[in-house]
Amino acid sequence: MTSPEPVVLSATAITKRFGTVDVLKGVDLTVRKGERIAILGSSGSGKSTLLRCLNLLERPTGGTIALDGRTIGRPDGKGCQRYDERELDRVRTRVGMVFQQFNLFPHMRVIENVMEAPRGVLGKSKAEAQAIAERQLAAVGLAEKATAWPAQLSGGQQQRVAIARALAMDPEVLLLDEPTSSLDPELVGEVLAAIRALSDEGRTMLIVTHELGFAFHFATRVLFLHDGKVLEEGPPEQVLKAPREERTRRFIERFTERRF
């Protein structure tokens, strides 16, 4: 037995309330280096909110997030965390995110999209940033689109650029929030292939997805969220093939039925 990999990111008792709705009701999560975690759950189960809390794009109502063992923010004395904007900026340089809607910068060429943060946030020279961007674009198979505008690309290509943009920061953890959900079915495959390629380099990733087949082969661990809590978690073989919980079973059945 090798010793377990170090913990990169952890969430403790995370709650999130929007107005009067409790979206997350106490989620604990420990992410070790090199893990690939698929987060499943029906809509409204809080999976996207959980992901967005992990890089503090959404500030949790309660609970704490720790990156590399260091708790982010400090207690305000009333049971909540106070966050400093600059600390959050630093955290986010190390926790990358890919969005459902790609969110490329439409006024910048593809390569400028990828160069922007390494240059402006990490302070790399133009030549360095360009080298990083070229490498990342090549990795997602879009080297020849470097000078194109985002509007000239297909959805699948835009999402691959978004992946390259996130990876150009060399984040310790990459969060992917339903990266294929707004794509035409024929474009889903190319994006999933790009994500799969990242697992070969041992990248730590959390993905919220509805692609159960992909989750099965890709993930090292599957989390099933229901009603703001982790209902079930474990290796994909167990959660997806022999779920313990009735709700998990029904969720999986609903998805597999569609495949005829």
């Binding site: 904007e85 986010r92 809607q101 946030v121 978004a162 996130a166």
Partner: peptide
């Protein structure tokens, strides 16, 4: 300007001013 643009920038660690 869509909220997603703000979020994409923040997710890359960009400061508000930048």
């Amino acid at each position: 300007v869509e909220r997603g643009q703000w979020e994409a920038g923040r997710a890359l660690g960009m400061s508000r001013a930048r």
